[in-house]
Structure formats: structure tokens, C-alpha cells
Nucleic acid binder design. Sequence first.
DNA 1: GAAACCTGGACATCTAATATCCGGGATGTG
DNA 2: CACATCCCGGATATTAGATGTCCAGGTTTC
Lengths: 156, 156
Amino acid sequence: MRMGQGVEWALHCCLNLAWVGAPVPGARLAGHYDLPAAYLNKQLQALVRAGICDSVPGPRGGFRLAREPGAVSLLDVVVALEGPEEAFRCTSILGAAPGGDPAADYSGSCAISLSMRSAELAWRRELAARSLADVAADVVRHAPDAPQRVRAALAP
Amino acid sequence: MRMGQGVEWALHCCLNLAWVGAPVPGARLAGHYDLPAAYLNKQLQALVRAGICDSVPGPRGGFRLAREPGAVSLLDVVVALEGPEEAFRCTSILGAAPGGDPAADYSGSCAISLSMRSAELAWRRELAARSLADVAADVVRHAPDAPQRVRAALAP
DNA sequence: GAAACCTGGACATCTAATATCCGGGATGTG
DNA sequence: CACATCCCGGATATTAGATGTCCAGGTTTC
């Protein structure tokens, strides 16, 4: 089971955008981490579609956070890039077993499906309870000059 | 992000094995759910390697649970099939950023990595706290004759 | 108008999951 | 012992998804 790399990229980019404030071109973000610009751009576009980022075309344009860092949870970013589907997907194989209804959807009644879903909910709860502002605060506690260095590297 | 289908198959099979008690051939389990026998067999083999199942060759052989259902957690099954690696993998892109150490491993210090890892721990905790016996008890509560029907369909 | 920048789609590539097949070994039965 | 049953593990397709590239448009600033 593996999460797309875009999540890691997007989270780092969002933290940086939170510190810069002004729009940052996607190419500059890509250069900052030595990432493929065109591909990173796709992830940023997904953040825009999810309402997490704003995009500004033209010179002096780029991407910026659309909300306060405290109003963007890690879950928001994960869902924006990975979609809302659960990692465990019940395919209702009980319907193929003797006595089962092949047309029924067991995802809401199968005890296995419910257990897996419940565990995944715990994961989502943790992610939802943690905002970009929380993470940023942790970074600053460990490296107080991080915001300033990011601004120096990325600000126009 | 998606979990392999083998996890669902294996969990259903393990529940059945818990109810049957005697060894059940992989082909019979596959027929029970109309699954590809050769492929399901690979998942069962992984359960054997993980010490969750025993395999008995020869006539009257098959697979059976190697431990009490109460001693097999959902996490055991997930790890047996998906491996111990985390879904979120820190690739230390901070090392490529200005001021970063390209050779360093940031997975233990990067605040983003730590947050993602912490959320995943919550998921694993839930899975570890739930055993096959717990799930089986839920099934019986909802369909008291399930164990008997499974035995009738799968027992030798 | 030109340059900077985002948008969205089409396309190529690579990896992992899914699936099949076969030769081999172990075990119980007659 | 001979045979049927069944697991083991490697080699090999097939497919879907993730990764990555490219280009023909827009929009905005200067």
C-alpha cells in the first residue's frame, strides 16, 4: 500500500506558500526541491481544484494558499491528491459465496469491511486534526529561521 | 492510495479457517468466493510465511489457522500481505532544498514526515487492537448461523 | 505586443498489482 | 510402492496506476 509522492511534495510546497504569502511560480517551487516542474504543476493544480491553493496567471503570478494555514488540514491535502476513496475497498466477495446475494453491496454490512473502515477513520481523524499551522509551528520550534530562509529563497 | 485486494480475500479466508478448524485446500477457498485459485494461493502462502496460517500438503491437506483467532490481529494480516512499509514515504526532499544536506535522512526529523507517520500509527493501533475473534463475534451477532454454513460449505 | 505564468489534454514510460502456468516436493490412501 | 491430492516457488504475461513529458491554448503584467 503506497501513497503517491505528490502528497509529500504538496505538503512541503504548502508550508512554503504559507510562509511566503505572495504567489510563487510552480517552476520556482520545483527548482527549490529539484522536482520535475511539469509534474509538480499537476499536483498544484489539484490543490487549486480542491480550493486549497489559488493560482494567479501572468508575471508576478504563481500559486498561493487560498486559506489561512490553520484552516488547511493534512487530510485536505491528502484527499485533494489521492481522492476520497478508502484504501481498503470492499468488493463484496460475500455476494459470490453460497447463500450470498451477488447483486448486494456488502460494504456497509460486512464485518470485515466495517472494521477496516473504522481503522481508516482513525487515520483520517488524525490527519484532519492537524493543520498546516500546527506543522509549521513544529518546524519553527526546531529551526526558528526556516520561514525567513524560505522567504529568501522563494519570494519575488 | 489503494490497498491490495489480497487483504480482503485473506481476511475472509482467515475467518472461514477459524470456523472450520480443519485444513481447507486453497482451491476450495477460491471456489467458495469465485476467486482465481492460483493467485489466492499466493496470498495464502504469504500468510504461512508470516506464521498466521499453517499449510498441510497431501490429501486431506490445505490451510488452517496457525494460532487462536484471538491471537491474530487485522494488522498481522495486513502486514503479511502488504509489507511493513508505511503508506507515506519520506523521500527527504528537504535535502535538495537550499541549506539542506543531500545525504541526510529527514524521515525522522522532518515535521511533515513525523505528522504523517503519527497518523498512520493511529491506523495501525486500531488494526492491532482488533483480532479475528472480534470480527467473528460481530459476524455471529448479525448472522448466528454463519459458522455452521461455512463449515457445511468448506469442511471435508 | 511581448513575456511570464497557469490550464488542460494528449502522450510516453515505468512500476506494482493482478493473474496464469508449470515443474517439483510432501503426504495420505490403496 | 503407485497414485492422487495438495502445497511451494519461480517464470512469465497482462493490466492499471503512478510518474513524467510535451504542447497548444488562455490570462495577466509590463
